[in-house]
Computed example of a mutant assay.
Amino acid sequence: MNDNGKINYGLNLNSASEEISVSDVPFTQFFNVMLKGDYEANGIGLQNNNTGTINITLPLGSTITNAFLYWYALENSTTLSNTGSLNNIAITGTLIASSTSDPCFFHESTHFFRADVTNIVNSGVNNVQINPGGSETLIDGASLVVIFSNPAFPRKQINHY
């Protein structure tokens, strides 16, 4: 974190000097809630296969209030891998970020997506499939964030960026 309270995580690759510089990118709050409960998150690498299983374990007596699936794809700048399924139900993700730097796999862009999956997520096994947007696309991974209420838990503010 720099002196201005920003996290440095944007990469810019200068091919002439092959230096990597970091630029300031401020966090933007996407979601917040105050509840008796907490959140659970898990993910899976999808680099060699665009399907996998994400397990979510919630405490007894919990009720899912919100759930978000995140994934990213290395692909051409005009390609969008924003569709797939969770538990065999079709999903469409919103493009939430994009980068034109890909120093590892030499694709034109890295696209980051989010889908609200509140009504289809399970406590337990969740089967995820992301559809590649093009033949050059590399789906690299997916993460599932589940927010839950539970009367046995203390009241808590959950902020999601």
Rank of each mutant, 00 (worst) to 15 (best):
V125M: 11
N150F: 03
V33D: 00
N88T: 12
I147E: 00
N8F: 09
Y39P: 00
T94C: 08
H160W: 15
N4R: 09
P151G: 11
A115C: 08
P132N: 04
T92V: 14
N88C: 10
T110E: 05
S123D: 05
N12K: 15
G5W: 01
G5T: 05
D102P: 07
P26K: 13
G124C: 11
L144K: 05
L74I: 06
T78L: 11
F31E: 05
C104Y: 15
A152N: 14
F153T: 05
N66Y: 05
V145G: 00
I44G: 04
T63F: 08
V22G: 04
G45Q: 10
N150L: 08
L58I: 03
T63E: 10
R114Q: 05
F112Q: 01
T53I: 13
T79H: 02
I89C: 06
G124W: 02
A90G: 12
Q29D: 09
L86N: 01
D102C: 11
V146Y: 00
A16K: 15
S85K: 06
T110N: 06
G84E: 02
V22R: 06
T137E: 04
F30N: 10
I54W: 07
I120E: 03
E75V: 06
E40S: 14
N12P: 02
N14C: 10
T83E: 05
W71P: 01
I56A: 08
N88R: 02
S21W: 04
I130H: 02
P59C: 07
N126P: 10
F106V: 08
Y161M: 03
T92G: 00
G84M: 03
L35H: 03
T63S: 13
P26Q: 13
I89N: 10
C104H: 14
N150T: 10
F31H: 05
A115S: 12
E75S: 08
L86G: 03
L95W: 07
A90M: 12
G5F: 03
T63C: 08
N126S: 10
F106G: 09
N2S: 13
V146H: 01
N82A: 10
H111I: 02
Q157K: 14
I96C: 04
N122R: 08
Y39F: 14
P59H: 06
T78H: 06
Q47P: 03
N48D: 14
Y161Q: 01
L95P: 09
A90Q: 12
Q47N: 07
F31L: 13
G134S: 15
N49P: 01
F27H: 11
Y70C: 00
G134A: 15
V25I: 15
T94V: 14
S21R: 11
